[in-house]
Design a protein around this nucleic acid. Structure first.
Lengths: 229, 229
DNA sequence: CAACATAGTGTCCAAGTGACACCAAGTCAA
DNA sequence: TTGACTTGGTGTCACTTGGACACTATGTTG
Protein backbone atom coordinates (compact mmCIF):
# COMPACT_ATOMS: atom_id res chain seq x y z
CA UNK A 1 0.00 0.00 0.00
CA UNK A 2 2.86 2.41 0.58
CA UNK A 3 3.87 2.80 -3.06
CA UNK A 4 0.68 3.58 -4.83
CA UNK A 5 1.95 3.32 -8.31
CA UNK A 6 3.65 -0.02 -8.10
CA UNK A 7 0.30 -1.69 -8.50
CA UNK A 8 -0.49 -3.08 -11.91
CA UNK A 9 -3.58 -1.37 -13.21
CA UNK A 10 -6.61 -2.67 -15.01
CA UNK A 11 -7.41 -0.78 -18.20
CA UNK A 12 -10.46 1.46 -17.84
CA UNK A 13 -13.14 1.97 -20.45
CA UNK A 14 -16.65 3.37 -20.69
CA UNK A 15 -19.47 1.67 -22.61
CA UNK A 16 -22.82 3.27 -23.35
CA UNK A 17 -26.25 1.76 -23.68
CA UNK A 18 -28.15 4.31 -25.76
CA UNK A 19 -31.89 3.87 -26.02
CA UNK A 20 -34.10 5.41 -28.65
CA UNK A 21 -37.67 4.81 -29.67
CA UNK A 22 -39.65 4.86 -32.89
CA UNK A 23 -43.23 3.93 -33.73
CA UNK A 24 -42.58 0.21 -33.57
CA UNK A 25 -39.99 -0.39 -30.96
CA UNK A 26 -37.57 0.46 -28.24
CA UNK A 27 -34.15 0.58 -29.90
CA UNK A 28 -30.55 0.34 -28.77
CA UNK A 29 -27.53 1.73 -30.60
CA UNK A 30 -24.81 -0.75 -31.56
CA UNK A 31 -21.48 -0.38 -33.33
CA UNK A 32 -19.81 -2.98 -35.50
CA UNK A 33 -16.32 -3.60 -34.19
CA UNK A 34 -13.46 -2.82 -36.58
CA UNK A 35 -10.76 -4.40 -34.43
CA UNK A 36 -9.89 -7.59 -32.68
CA UNK A 37 -11.10 -8.99 -30.44
CA UNK A 38 -14.64 -9.62 -31.65
CA UNK A 39 -13.84 -8.04 -35.03
CA UNK A 40 -17.02 -7.69 -37.05
CA UNK A 41 -19.24 -8.34 -34.03
CA UNK A 42 -21.75 -5.83 -32.75
CA UNK A 43 -20.96 -4.08 -29.49
CA UNK A 44 -21.96 -1.14 -27.35
CA UNK A 45 -20.29 2.14 -28.25
CA UNK A 46 -17.43 2.96 -25.90
CA UNK A 47 -13.71 3.19 -25.46
CA UNK A 48 -10.81 4.03 -23.21
CA UNK A 49 -10.98 6.73 -20.58
CA UNK A 50 -8.31 9.39 -20.98
CA UNK A 51 -6.20 10.52 -18.07
CA UNK A 52 -7.50 14.06 -17.93
CA UNK A 53 -11.23 13.55 -18.51
CA UNK A 54 -14.02 12.60 -16.13
CA UNK A 55 -15.95 9.40 -16.67
CA UNK A 56 -19.04 11.30 -17.82
CA UNK A 57 -16.93 13.25 -20.29
CA UNK A 58 -15.43 10.05 -21.63
CA UNK A 59 -18.89 8.63 -22.23
CA UNK A 60 -20.04 11.75 -24.02
CA UNK A 61 -16.88 11.91 -26.11
CA UNK A 62 -17.17 8.31 -27.24
CA UNK A 63 -20.79 8.79 -28.22
CA UNK A 64 -19.92 11.86 -30.20
CA UNK A 65 -16.95 10.19 -31.91
CA UNK A 66 -18.51 6.86 -32.68
CA UNK A 67 -22.03 7.86 -33.54
CA UNK A 68 -22.33 11.64 -33.62
CA UNK A 69 -24.78 11.51 -30.74
CA UNK A 70 -25.42 13.94 -27.91
CA UNK A 71 -27.81 12.20 -25.58
CA UNK A 72 -30.53 14.18 -23.84
CA UNK A 73 -30.09 12.05 -20.76
CA UNK A 74 -26.91 10.36 -19.56
CA UNK A 75 -26.23 8.65 -16.27
CA UNK A 76 -23.79 6.15 -14.89
CA UNK A 77 -25.23 2.66 -14.83
CA UNK A 78 -22.87 0.14 -13.28
CA UNK A 79 -19.22 -0.85 -13.36
CA UNK A 80 -18.36 -4.24 -14.78
CA UNK A 81 -15.01 -5.63 -13.76
CA UNK A 82 -14.97 -9.43 -13.82
CA UNK A 83 -11.39 -10.49 -14.49
CA UNK A 84 -12.35 -12.60 -17.51
CA UNK A 85 -14.63 -10.17 -19.31
CA UNK A 86 -12.07 -9.07 -21.92
CA UNK A 87 -9.80 -11.64 -23.61
CA UNK A 88 -6.97 -9.11 -23.88
CA UNK A 89 -6.55 -8.94 -20.12
CA UNK A 90 -8.01 -7.03 -17.25
CA UNK A 91 -10.35 -4.32 -18.47
CA UNK A 92 -12.84 -2.66 -16.18
CA UNK A 93 -15.67 -0.76 -17.82
CA UNK A 94 -17.94 1.89 -16.41
CA UNK A 95 -21.25 1.42 -18.19
CA UNK A 96 -23.52 4.36 -18.98
CA UNK A 97 -27.18 4.62 -19.69
CA UNK A 98 -28.36 7.19 -22.24
CA UNK A 99 -31.60 8.29 -23.84
CA UNK A 100 -31.93 10.12 -27.15
CA UNK A 101 -34.76 11.41 -29.25
CA UNK A 102 -34.51 9.15 -32.27
CA UNK A 103 -35.97 11.85 -34.49
CA UNK A 104 -32.73 13.82 -34.02
CA UNK A 105 -30.47 10.92 -34.83
CA UNK A 106 -32.25 8.83 -37.38
CA UNK A 107 -30.15 9.92 -40.34
CA UNK A 108 -26.50 9.64 -39.46
CA UNK A 109 -26.37 6.88 -36.92
CA UNK A 110 -22.96 6.28 -38.43
CA UNK A 111 -20.28 8.92 -38.63
CA UNK A 112 -16.61 8.15 -38.76
CA UNK A 113 -15.79 5.08 -40.81
CA UNK A 114 -17.60 2.93 -38.31
CA UNK A 115 -20.85 1.16 -38.87
CA UNK A 116 -23.54 2.02 -36.37
CA UNK A 117 -27.16 0.94 -36.30
CA UNK A 118 -30.28 0.88 -34.19
CA UNK A 119 -31.62 -2.52 -33.15
CA UNK A 120 -34.81 -3.49 -31.46
CA UNK A 121 -33.87 -4.26 -27.85
CA UNK A 122 -35.86 -7.47 -28.02
CA UNK A 123 -33.98 -8.68 -31.03
CA UNK A 124 -30.28 -7.86 -30.91
CA UNK A 125 -27.49 -9.84 -32.51
CA UNK A 126 -24.94 -11.63 -30.32
CA UNK A 127 -22.88 -8.98 -28.61
CA UNK A 128 -19.14 -8.76 -27.95
CA UNK A 129 -17.66 -9.12 -24.46
CA UNK A 130 -20.26 -9.09 -21.68
CA UNK A 131 -22.26 -6.42 -23.45
CA UNK A 132 -25.42 -8.51 -23.36
CA UNK A 133 -25.22 -8.38 -19.56
CA UNK A 134 -24.72 -4.65 -19.67
CA UNK A 135 -27.70 -4.23 -21.95
CA UNK A 136 -29.80 -6.36 -19.63
CA UNK A 137 -28.83 -4.25 -16.66
CA UNK A 138 -29.66 -1.09 -18.58
CA UNK A 139 -33.09 -2.43 -19.50
CA UNK A 140 -33.79 -3.22 -15.88
CA UNK A 141 -32.76 0.29 -14.93
CA UNK A 142 -34.96 1.82 -17.59
CA UNK A 143 -37.93 -0.24 -16.47
CA UNK A 144 -37.37 0.60 -12.85
CA UNK A 145 -36.68 4.26 -13.36
CA UNK A 146 -39.52 5.04 -15.70
CA UNK A 147 -41.97 4.14 -12.94
CA UNK A 148 -40.96 6.91 -10.60
CA UNK A 149 -39.19 9.47 -12.75
CA UNK A 150 -40.47 11.07 -15.92
CA UNK A 151 -37.43 10.31 -18.04
CA UNK A 152 -39.45 8.65 -20.79
CA UNK A 153 -39.97 12.04 -22.38
CA UNK A 154 -36.32 12.10 -23.39
CA UNK A 155 -37.17 9.39 -25.90
CA UNK A 156 -40.00 11.28 -27.60
CA UNK A 157 -39.91 14.26 -29.94
CA UNK A 158 -40.52 17.59 -28.19
CA UNK A 159 -44.17 17.54 -29.24
CA UNK A 160 -46.04 14.29 -28.86
CA UNK A 161 -49.50 12.84 -28.46
CA UNK A 162 -50.78 11.06 -25.40
CA UNK A 163 -51.08 7.88 -27.42
CA UNK A 164 -47.39 8.01 -28.32
CA UNK A 165 -46.55 8.52 -24.67
CA UNK A 166 -48.70 5.62 -23.63
CA UNK A 167 -47.11 3.35 -26.23
CA UNK A 168 -43.72 4.32 -24.89
CA UNK A 169 -44.66 3.27 -21.39
CA UNK A 170 -46.21 0.08 -22.66
CA UNK A 171 -43.08 -0.85 -24.58
CA UNK A 172 -40.80 -0.20 -21.65
CA UNK A 173 -42.97 -1.87 -19.04
CA UNK A 174 -43.95 -4.68 -21.39
CA UNK A 175 -47.58 -4.57 -20.41
CA UNK A 176 -50.71 -2.88 -21.73
CA UNK A 177 -52.06 0.15 -19.90
CA UNK A 178 -55.63 1.37 -19.75
CA UNK A 179 -56.08 4.44 -21.91
CA UNK A 180 -58.35 6.39 -19.59
CA UNK A 181 -56.47 5.60 -16.42
CA UNK A 182 -53.18 6.43 -18.08
CA UNK A 183 -54.39 9.83 -19.25
CA UNK A 184 -55.95 10.59 -15.89
CA UNK A 185 -52.72 9.79 -14.09
CA UNK A 186 -50.35 11.56 -16.46
CA UNK A 187 -52.44 14.71 -16.73
CA UNK A 188 -52.95 14.88 -12.97
CA UNK A 189 -49.19 15.30 -12.54
CA UNK A 190 -49.49 18.59 -14.40
CA UNK A 191 -46.16 18.14 -16.12
CA UNK A 192 -47.60 18.34 -19.63
CA UNK A 193 -48.30 21.52 -21.47
CA UNK A 194 -51.31 21.16 -23.74
CA UNK A 195 -50.55 22.78 -27.11
CA UNK A 196 -52.96 24.32 -29.60
CA UNK A 197 -51.72 21.95 -32.25
CA UNK A 198 -52.57 18.52 -33.53
CA UNK A 199 -50.46 15.90 -35.22
CA UNK A 200 -50.11 16.11 -39.03
CA UNK A 201 -50.42 13.69 -41.92
CA UNK A 202 -52.44 10.99 -40.28
CA UNK A 203 -55.32 9.28 -42.04
CA UNK A 204 -57.75 9.57 -39.19
CA UNK A 205 -58.73 12.07 -36.54
CA UNK A 206 -55.60 13.94 -35.46
CA UNK A 207 -54.58 13.88 -31.82
CA UNK A 208 -53.69 16.90 -29.74
CA UNK A 209 -50.00 17.55 -29.13
CA UNK A 210 -48.39 18.03 -25.73
CA UNK A 211 -45.02 19.18 -24.54
CA UNK A 212 -43.16 18.12 -21.41
CA UNK A 213 -42.65 21.01 -19.02
CA UNK A 214 -39.07 20.57 -17.84
CA UNK A 215 -39.11 23.74 -15.79
CA UNK A 216 -42.14 22.75 -13.80
CA UNK A 217 -40.67 19.30 -13.32
CA UNK A 218 -37.50 20.66 -11.78
CA UNK A 219 -39.55 22.80 -9.40
CA UNK A 220 -41.74 19.94 -8.25
CA UNK A 221 -38.78 17.61 -8.00
CA UNK A 222 -37.00 19.99 -5.63
CA UNK A 223 -40.14 20.15 -3.53
CA UNK A 224 -39.75 16.42 -3.00
CA UNK A 225 -42.59 15.42 -5.26
CA UNK A 226 -43.53 11.91 -6.23
CA UNK A 227 -43.92 10.89 -9.87
CA UNK A 228 -44.89 7.32 -9.56
CA UNK A 229 -46.83 5.94 -12.43
CA UNK B 1 -7.43 2.43 -30.33
CA UNK B 2 -5.45 -0.29 -32.03
CA UNK B 3 -2.89 -0.82 -29.26
CA UNK B 4 -4.94 -1.29 -26.19
CA UNK B 5 -2.16 -1.19 -23.73
CA UNK B 6 -0.48 1.99 -24.82
CA UNK B 7 -3.08 3.96 -22.96
CA UNK B 8 -2.05 5.41 -19.62
CA UNK B 9 -4.27 3.94 -16.97
CA UNK B 10 -5.96 5.46 -13.99
CA UNK B 11 -5.33 3.59 -10.75
CA UNK B 12 -8.38 1.64 -9.58
CA UNK B 13 -9.56 1.32 -6.00
CA UNK B 14 -12.65 0.24 -4.12
CA UNK B 15 -14.07 2.12 -1.14
CA UNK B 16 -16.80 0.81 1.12
CA UNK B 17 -19.53 2.58 3.01
CA UNK B 18 -20.43 0.18 5.78
CA UNK B 19 -23.55 0.94 7.77
CA UNK B 20 -24.39 -0.48 11.15
CA UNK B 21 -26.99 0.42 13.74
CA UNK B 22 -27.21 0.44 17.50
CA UNK B 23 -29.89 1.64 19.91
CA UNK B 24 -29.07 5.29 19.42
CA UNK B 25 -27.96 5.76 15.89
CA UNK B 26 -27.19 4.76 12.34
CA UNK B 27 -23.44 4.31 12.19
CA UNK B 28 -20.78 4.26 9.51
CA UNK B 29 -17.39 2.58 9.73
CA UNK B 30 -14.32 4.79 9.24
CA UNK B 31 -10.59 4.09 9.24
CA UNK B 32 -7.88 6.47 10.33
CA UNK B 33 -5.37 6.81 7.52
CA UNK B 34 -1.81 5.72 8.28
CA UNK B 35 -0.32 7.10 5.07
CA UNK B 36 -0.08 10.26 3.06
CA UNK B 37 -2.09 11.83 1.61
CA UNK B 38 -4.55 12.73 4.35
CA UNK B 39 -2.42 11.00 6.98
CA UNK B 40 -4.28 10.88 10.26
CA UNK B 41 -7.61 11.80 8.64
CA UNK B 42 -10.61 9.54 8.74
CA UNK B 43 -11.61 7.81 5.52
CA UNK B 44 -13.76 5.02 4.17
CA UNK B 45 -12.17 1.57 4.23
CA UNK B 46 -10.85 0.59 0.83
CA UNK B 47 -7.80 0.03 -1.31
CA UNK B 48 -6.40 -0.99 -4.64
CA UNK B 49 -8.01 -3.62 -6.81
CA UNK B 50 -5.73 -6.52 -7.65
CA UNK B 51 -5.35 -7.78 -11.19
CA UNK B 52 -6.85 -11.17 -10.63
CA UNK B 53 -9.82 -10.34 -8.37
CA UNK B 54 -13.30 -9.09 -9.18
CA UNK B 55 -14.46 -5.73 -7.86
CA UNK B 56 -16.79 -7.39 -5.36
CA UNK B 57 -13.96 -9.57 -4.13
CA UNK B 58 -11.73 -6.55 -3.74
CA UNK B 59 -14.35 -4.84 -1.60
CA UNK B 60 -14.79 -7.92 0.59
CA UNK B 61 -11.04 -8.40 0.94
CA UNK B 62 -10.45 -4.81 2.00
CA UNK B 63 -13.21 -4.98 4.59
CA UNK B 64 -11.77 -8.17 5.99
CA UNK B 65 -8.22 -6.80 6.06
CA UNK B 66 -8.92 -3.36 7.41
CA UNK B 67 -11.70 -4.07 9.85
CA UNK B 68 -12.25 -7.80 10.12
CA UNK B 69 -15.74 -7.39 8.75
CA UNK B 70 -17.86 -9.69 6.59
CA UNK B 71 -20.90 -7.68 5.61
CA UNK B 72 -24.28 -9.38 5.42
CA UNK B 73 -25.18 -7.23 2.44
CA UNK B 74 -22.79 -5.81 -0.16
CA UNK B 75 -23.60 -4.07 -3.39
CA UNK B 76 -21.90 -1.77 -5.81
CA UNK B 77 -22.88 1.85 -5.26
CA UNK B 78 -21.31 4.18 -7.79
CA UNK B 79 -17.98 4.84 -9.46
CA UNK B 80 -16.24 8.11 -8.68
CA UNK B 81 -13.66 9.21 -11.21
CA UNK B 82 -13.26 12.99 -11.25
CA UNK B 83 -9.69 13.70 -12.37
CA UNK B 84 -8.93 15.82 -9.29
CA UNK B 85 -10.30 13.57 -6.58
CA UNK B 86 -6.92 12.20 -5.45
CA UNK B 87 -3.90 14.51 -5.08
CA UNK B 88 -1.54 11.70 -6.12
CA UNK B 89 -2.94 11.58 -9.63
CA UNK B 90 -5.74 9.88 -11.44
CA UNK B 91 -7.47 7.38 -9.20
CA UNK B 92 -10.88 6.00 -10.02
CA UNK B 93 -12.77 4.33 -7.20
CA UNK B 94 -15.67 1.92 -7.32
CA UNK B 95 -17.70 2.63 -4.21
CA UNK B 96 -19.55 -0.10 -2.38
CA UNK B 97 -22.46 -0.06 -0.02
CA UNK B 98 -22.52 -2.58 2.83
CA UNK B 99 -24.71 -3.43 5.80
CA UNK B 100 -23.61 -5.31 8.90
CA UNK B 101 -25.21 -6.41 12.13
CA UNK B 102 -23.37 -4.28 14.63
CA UNK B 103 -23.86 -6.90 17.32
CA UNK B 104 -21.41 -9.14 15.42
CA UNK B 105 -18.78 -6.47 15.02
CA UNK B 106 -18.98 -4.31 18.06
CA UNK B 107 -15.85 -5.63 19.73
CA UNK B 108 -13.00 -5.63 17.27
CA UNK B 109 -13.87 -2.83 14.92
CA UNK B 110 -10.11 -2.56 14.63
CA UNK B 111 -7.88 -5.42 13.54
CA UNK B 112 -4.51 -4.96 11.93
CA UNK B 113 -2.54 -2.06 13.33
CA UNK B 114 -5.11 0.32 11.89
CA UNK B 115 -7.57 2.36 13.85
CA UNK B 116 -11.18 1.81 12.93
CA UNK B 117 -14.31 3.19 14.55
CA UNK B 118 -18.04 3.57 14.17
CA UNK B 119 -19.39 7.11 13.81
CA UNK B 120 -22.91 8.39 13.80
CA UNK B 121 -23.69 9.15 10.16
CA UNK B 122 -25.10 12.52 11.19
CA UNK B 123 -21.92 13.50 12.94
CA UNK B 124 -18.82 12.35 11.10
CA UNK B 125 -15.41 14.04 11.15
CA UNK B 126 -14.05 15.65 7.99
CA UNK B 127 -13.27 12.87 5.57
CA UNK B 128 -10.33 12.35 3.23
CA UNK B 129 -10.62 12.65 -0.56
CA UNK B 130 -14.23 12.92 -1.80
CA UNK B 131 -15.38 10.40 0.77
CA UNK B 132 -18.01 12.77 2.12
CA UNK B 133 -19.65 12.71 -1.33
CA UNK B 134 -19.49 8.95 -1.38
CA UNK B 135 -21.07 8.74 2.05
CA UNK B 136 -23.81 11.12 0.93
CA UNK B 137 -24.54 8.99 -2.11
CA UNK B 138 -24.65 5.87 0.05
CA UNK B 139 -27.11 7.48 2.45
CA UNK B 140 -29.37 8.42 -0.42
CA UNK B 141 -29.22 4.86 -1.68
CA UNK B 142 -30.02 3.46 1.73
CA UNK B 143 -32.97 5.81 2.11
CA UNK B 144 -34.26 5.02 -1.34
CA UNK B 145 -33.74 1.31 -1.16
CA UNK B 146 -35.21 0.72 2.25
CA UNK B 147 -38.57 1.90 0.95
CA UNK B 148 -39.02 -0.89 -1.55
CA UNK B 149 -36.68 -3.66 -0.43
CA UNK B 150 -36.47 -5.24 2.99
CA UNK B 151 -32.73 -4.80 3.44
CA UNK B 152 -33.07 -3.05 6.77
CA UNK B 153 -33.08 -6.44 8.48
CA UNK B 154 -29.41 -6.83 7.67
CA UNK B 155 -28.73 -4.12 10.25
CA UNK B 156 -30.59 -5.82 13.10
CA UNK B 157 -29.69 -8.86 15.15
CA UNK B 158 -31.33 -12.08 13.95
CA UNK B 159 -34.07 -11.75 16.55
CA UNK B 160 -35.58 -8.34 17.06
CA UNK B 161 -38.70 -6.59 18.30
CA UNK B 162 -41.08 -4.61 16.16
CA UNK B 163 -40.13 -1.49 18.06
CA UNK B 164 -36.48 -1.97 17.14
CA UNK B 165 -37.48 -2.43 13.53
CA UNK B 166 -39.59 0.68 13.57
CA UNK B 167 -36.79 2.72 15.11
CA UNK B 168 -34.50 1.50 12.34
CA UNK B 169 -36.88 2.74 9.68
CA UNK B 170 -37.37 6.02 11.48
CA UNK B 171 -33.63 6.62 11.68
CA UNK B 172 -33.05 5.86 8.03
CA UNK B 173 -36.03 7.78 6.72
CA UNK B 174 -35.54 10.59 9.23
CA UNK B 175 -39.19 10.85 10.06
CA UNK B 176 -41.48 9.39 12.72
CA UNK B 177 -43.80 6.54 11.77
CA UNK B 178 -47.11 5.65 13.31
CA UNK B 179 -46.78 2.56 15.47
CA UNK B 180 -50.04 0.89 14.51
CA UNK B 181 -49.77 1.63 10.82
CA UNK B 182 -46.19 0.44 10.77
CA UNK B 183 -47.02 -2.87 12.40
CA UNK B 184 -50.03 -3.38 10.18
CA UNK B 185 -47.95 -2.81 7.07
CA UNK B 186 -44.93 -4.88 8.05
CA UNK B 187 -46.92 -7.83 9.32
CA UNK B 188 -49.14 -7.83 6.23
CA UNK B 189 -46.07 -8.56 4.10
CA UNK B 190 -45.76 -11.86 5.93
CA UNK B 191 -41.99 -11.79 5.91
CA UNK B 192 -41.65 -11.96 9.67
CA UNK B 193 -41.70 -15.12 11.67
CA UNK B 194 -43.27 -14.59 15.07
CA UNK B 195 -41.18 -16.36 17.70
CA UNK B 196 -42.26 -17.77 21.05
CA UNK B 197 -39.73 -15.60 22.79
CA UNK B 198 -39.57 -12.17 24.27
CA UNK B 199 -36.68 -9.79 24.78
CA UNK B 200 -34.66 -10.18 27.98
CA UNK B 201 -33.37 -7.84 30.67
CA UNK B 202 -35.67 -4.93 30.16
CA UNK B 203 -37.25 -3.08 33.00
CA UNK B 204 -40.74 -3.06 31.61
CA UNK B 205 -43.06 -5.37 29.74
CA UNK B 206 -40.96 -7.43 27.35
CA UNK B 207 -41.73 -7.32 23.64
CA UNK B 208 -42.18 -10.33 21.41
CA UNK B 209 -39.27 -11.27 19.18
CA UNK B 210 -39.48 -11.77 15.42
CA UNK B 211 -37.15 -13.17 12.83
CA UNK B 212 -36.87 -12.16 9.19
CA UNK B 213 -37.80 -15.01 6.88
CA UNK B 214 -35.15 -14.85 4.14
CA UNK B 215 -36.45 -17.94 2.41
CA UNK B 216 -39.96 -16.61 2.05
CA UNK B 217 -38.56 -13.30 0.89
CA UNK B 218 -36.62 -14.89 -1.94
CA UNK B 219 -39.72 -16.77 -3.05
CA UNK B 220 -41.96 -13.72 -3.06
CA UNK B 221 -39.26 -11.64 -4.70
CA UNK B 222 -39.03 -14.07 -7.59
CA UNK B 223 -42.78 -13.91 -7.98
CA UNK B 224 -42.36 -10.21 -8.68
CA UNK B 225 -43.73 -9.04 -5.38
CA UNK B 226 -43.76 -5.50 -4.12
CA UNK B 227 -42.31 -4.55 -0.75
CA UNK B 228 -42.99 -0.91 -0.61
CA UNK B 229 -43.19 0.57 2.83
C1' DC C 1 -49.33 -1.89 45.68
C1' DA C 2 -48.67 2.25 43.23
C1' DA C 3 -46.12 4.41 39.77
C1' DC C 4 -43.66 3.62 35.59
C1' DA C 5 -42.51 2.25 30.92
C1' DT C 6 -43.30 0.05 26.96
C1' DA C 7 -46.32 -3.51 24.32
C1' DG C 8 -50.02 -4.25 21.76
C1' DT C 9 -54.41 -3.46 19.40
C1' DG C 10 -58.97 -1.38 15.58
C1' DT C 11 -61.76 2.15 13.31
C1' DC C 12 -62.85 5.56 10.21
C1' DC C 13 -62.18 8.67 6.48
C1' DA C 14 -59.92 10.23 2.29
C1' DA C 15 -57.44 9.31 -1.59
C1' DG C 16 -55.94 6.45 -5.09
C1' DT C 17 -56.15 2.43 -8.30
C1' DG C 18 -58.14 -0.25 -11.68
C1' DA C 19 -62.02 -2.11 -14.50
C1' DC C 20 -65.00 -0.79 -17.86
C1' DA C 21 -67.77 1.28 -23.08
C1' DC C 22 -69.30 4.65 -25.91
C1' DC C 23 -69.57 8.88 -28.93
C1' DA C 24 -66.61 12.25 -31.75
C1' DA C 25 -63.88 13.62 -35.50
C1' DG C 26 -61.39 13.08 -39.38
C1' DT C 27 -60.01 10.12 -43.72
C1' DC C 28 -60.89 7.38 -47.54
C1' DA C 29 -63.04 4.99 -51.18
C1' DA C 30 -67.04 3.88 -53.80
C1' DT D 1 -72.30 12.31 -50.46
C1' DT D 2 -72.33 8.84 -47.69
C1' DG D 3 -70.94 4.94 -45.19
C1' DA D 4 -67.11 2.42 -43.34
C1' DC D 5 -63.03 2.72 -40.98
C1' DT D 6 -59.59 4.38 -37.71
C1' DT D 7 -58.09 6.58 -33.79
C1' DG D 8 -59.23 10.40 -30.26
C1' DG D 9 -61.20 11.53 -26.20
C1' DT D 10 -64.10 11.16 -22.08
C1' DG D 11 -66.58 9.52 -16.52
C1' DT D 12 -68.22 6.38 -13.00
C1' DC D 13 -68.15 3.08 -9.57
C1' DA D 14 -66.20 -0.52 -6.54
C1' DC D 15 -62.42 -1.60 -4.11
C1' DT D 16 -58.05 -1.00 -1.90
C1' DT D 17 -54.79 1.56 0.46
C1' DG D 18 -52.76 5.03 3.51
C1' DG D 19 -52.91 7.88 7.31
C1' DA D 20 -54.82 9.93 11.61
C1' DC D 21 -55.96 8.74 15.99
C1' DA D 22 -56.10 6.70 22.02
C1' DC D 23 -56.66 3.35 25.13
C1' DT D 24 -55.84 -1.08 27.77
C1' DA D 25 -52.37 -4.80 28.92
C1' DT D 26 -48.30 -6.48 31.00
C1' DG D 27 -44.27 -6.54 33.27
C1' DT D 28 -40.73 -3.96 36.51
C1' DT D 29 -39.30 -1.23 40.29
C1' DG D 30 -39.16 0.97 44.71
Amino acid sequence: MSHTYEYPRPALTVDCVVFGMDEEDLKVLLIKRGLEPFLGKWALPGGFVRMEESLDDAARRELEEEAGIRPSHLEQLFTFGEPGRDPRGRVVTVAYFALVKLSDHRVHASTDAREAAWFSVWDTPKLAFDHADILGTALQRLKGKVRYQPIGFELLPPKFTLTQLQRLYEMILERPLDKRNFRKKILSMELLEELDEVEQDVSHRAARLYRFDHKKYRQLEKAGFNFEL
